[in-house]
Design a protein around this nucleic acid. Structure first.
Length: 306
DNA sequence: CATTAACATATC
DNA sequence: GATATGTTA
């Protein structure tokens, strides 16, 4: 197995989780611009979760409710329960347990926060692959999956149709997604069996099923990233939200990194990322390839991952 | 007072 | 084990 492709790792992240919990409880909040806010006295309270409808109006986390209402006059506001004058998140913790229970049927999970969990799917993928008689995957089983880097421009979506081109101007996002999956399946099934690419695809299949089970049993929707390690899975998860999942093959990383700000990588969003950018005078992840491991280790210490 | 709370890791 | 620091949502 190629270096860096040993495992299949996924990160599942609930979409605006606190909002979904309140929407399940109060149907009047569903499919509307709404937020969850804590405390009431100062500027209407501070916002800790935002529905995607409200995001479309420019409402963000940690905005004051009074300010958000200016951007979105019909914004609905759910309040965090308060006990002893403090925000009480028990409600959301209990909903989190419901989700974790369903996910745990599919794999051993590592709870990363109240609304996200990592999982190593390597063993589950091997099992599943073994039990797939024709070892083929129907693209309709990857209904909500994006393959990062696909479709590749200048390639045809199918072997017997050499007239079609990948044309953004006439294709909507769903059509493009679907063509990308087809192209990926066509190109990753040739070559060695059970390749790293095929393992990611089987991982995506398992995560599709896991996410469907979570929605069926809890009513909550989520997004996911599937790749070879936790950092890439987390990055992938953010590429197509909400209610979608993204496979990030190692071969698509270089192109993605070429325009990706260093601050977008988990744990580099703060002082560490700023110090890298400052010290080396570079902006994007891809720029880091011009430095040797020794150079990077020199300035950014052994303890911090170099 | 005006995010705030949770979580992980480093340090004493 | 407590405390400080960093990071995230």
């Amino acid at each position: 197995m190629d270096y860096g492709k040993e495992r299949v790792v996924a990160l599942v992240d609930m979409d605006c989780f606190y909002v979904q919990v309140e929407q399940r409880l109060n149907p009047a909040l569903r499919n509307t611009p709404c937020v969850v806010a804590q405390y009431k006295t100062w500027k209407g309270g501070s916002i800790i979760a935002v529905s995607y409808e409200a995001r479309a109006h420019g409402v963000t986390r940690n905005m004051w409710v009074d300010d958000a209402k200016k951007l979105c006059p019909d914004l609905q506001v759910a309040r965090v329960r308060e006990s002893h004058g403090k925000a009480d998140l028990t409600h959301y913790r209990e909903a989190s347990v419901e989700v974790i229970e369903v996910m745990s049927r599919f794999a051993v999970i590592e709870r990363a926060s109240i609304d996200e969990a990592y999982m190593d799917l390597t063993a589950a993928v091997q099992q599943r692959w073994k039990n797939m008689p024709d070892q083929q995957i129907n693209p309709c089983l990857l209904r909500t999956t994006y393959i990062q880097g696909y479709p590749q421009s200048g390639q045809e979506p199918s072997a017997d149709d050499d007239s079609s081109q990948v044309d953004d101007s006439i294709m909507d996002k769903e059509q493009r997604r679907s063509i990308g999956v087809q192209q990926w399946l066509a190109s990753s099934s040739i070559g060695e069996q059970n390749s790293a690419e095929m393992q990611l695809t089987v991982g995506a299949l398992i995560v599709e099923e896991m996410r469907a089970a979570v929605e069926k049993h809890t009513g909550f929707r989520c997004s996911a990233g599937i790749s070879h390690n936790k950092v890439l899975a987390k990055l992938a998860c953010g590429l197509n939200k909400p209610n979608r999942q993204t496979v990030l093959p190692l071969d698509s990383v270089a192109e993605l990194f070429s325009t990706l700000p260093i601050s977008k990588i988990r744990n580099l969003g703060g002082k560490m990322g700023a110090s890298i950018t400052e010290t080396l005078g570079v902006a994007n992840m891809g720029d880091l390839t011009q430095f040797s491991q020794a150079q990077l280790g020199q300035h950014f210490g052994e303890k911090t991952g170099f």
